[in-house]
């Protein structure tokens, strides 16, 4: 994405939704320091050739880190531009060897009541889980982020490794991943479990499909100040050219 002016490091790391550390926007930055992110192990299992517990350090060794400046659109109708550092999810899945029958990828966030004060209250059904169709997961825009602005990703942003799917609402981009499972069934996703009427499995950014409680036609750009004008929201968050083909022939109003 060219011509995008990234938000400041402070905006990106002090304004977060990460309910495991509290539901307020500043709670994660205040509380997430308690999360132990090293050592870290990611279990990759299900329909893969090489299932097992992968040490985060060995994943980092095997992957080539690059920068991706992406728009980030929250389902709450605010947005940012974030310079992520990371690698394509396809490369990680390639390392584990995806078997031919796999159709979906399921993800799971760490669930540690001792380190995550928010999971002591059932704001959601913990642990946080998310999922993608395999072709979405293999898309070159889909990355695992391990850094922001060239620095290791802060805990409140999903350390040590989080998903980033730039054409979907932010909650799809699951944080602090401990498990990745290849499956042939559509996996459950946290917000869909909490309220299926409001949050679908796909959750592609779509200005024409409003959230039942608010319009998604426009967004407030974080960092614009009190009097900033709302900006129109772009189809697939501006990545229509790259990803529209994934959904050809699908009714996006029904599959929201």
């Amino acid at each position: 994405a060219d011509g995008l002016e990234p938000n400041s490091y402070e905006d990106i790391t002090q304004y977060n939704n990460y309910y495991e550390f509290g539901t307020g926007k500043t709670d994660p930055a205040r509380n997430a320091h308690t999360l132990t992110t090293s050592p870290w192990t990611v279990k990759i299992d299900g329909m893969v050739d090489k299932p097992g517990d992968y040490a985060m350090a060995s994943i980092m060794e095997a992957m080539t880190i690059e920068e991706r400046i992406y728009r980030f659109r929250c389902v709450e109708a605010w947005s940012m531009v974030i310079p992520w550092n990371g690698f394509e999810l396809a490369d990680l899945l390639g390392m584990a060897g995806v078997q031919s029958g796999a159709k979906y990828v399921a993800f799971e966030t760490a669930n540690r009541p001792d380190e995550m004060p928010g999971v002591r209250f059932p704001a959601l059904d913990w642990p946080y889980v998310e999922g993608l169709r395999l072709d979405e997961a293999m898309h070159p825009l889909t990355i695992m982020a391990t850094g922001i602005y060239g620095k290791p990703i802060p805990n409140q942003n999903g350390a040590p490794m989080r998903l980033v799917v730039p054409w979907k609402y932010g909650f799809k981009s699951i944080k602090s991943i401990v498990r990745i499972t290849l499956t042939d069934q559509e996996p459950p996703t946290s917000w869909n479990k909490a309220n299926a009427r409001e949050y679908g499995f796909y959750s592609n950014v779509n200005p024409e499909v409003s959230h039942p409680r608010w319009s998604q036609a426009s967004e407030r750009m974080v960092g614009g100040g009190l009097f900033a004008k709302r900006q129109p929201t772009l189809m697939f968050n501006g990545y229509e050219e790259e990803v529209a083909a994934l959904y050809e022939g699908m009714d996006l109003k029904a599959n929201f």
Partner: peptide
């Protein structure tokens, strides 16, 4: 506080 950026980077909602 909102005008001076002391309600965070997205001051409309907090206000």
């Amino acid at each position: 506080l909102a005008v001076t950026g002391n309600l965070g980077p997205d001051p409309v909602k907090p206000l």
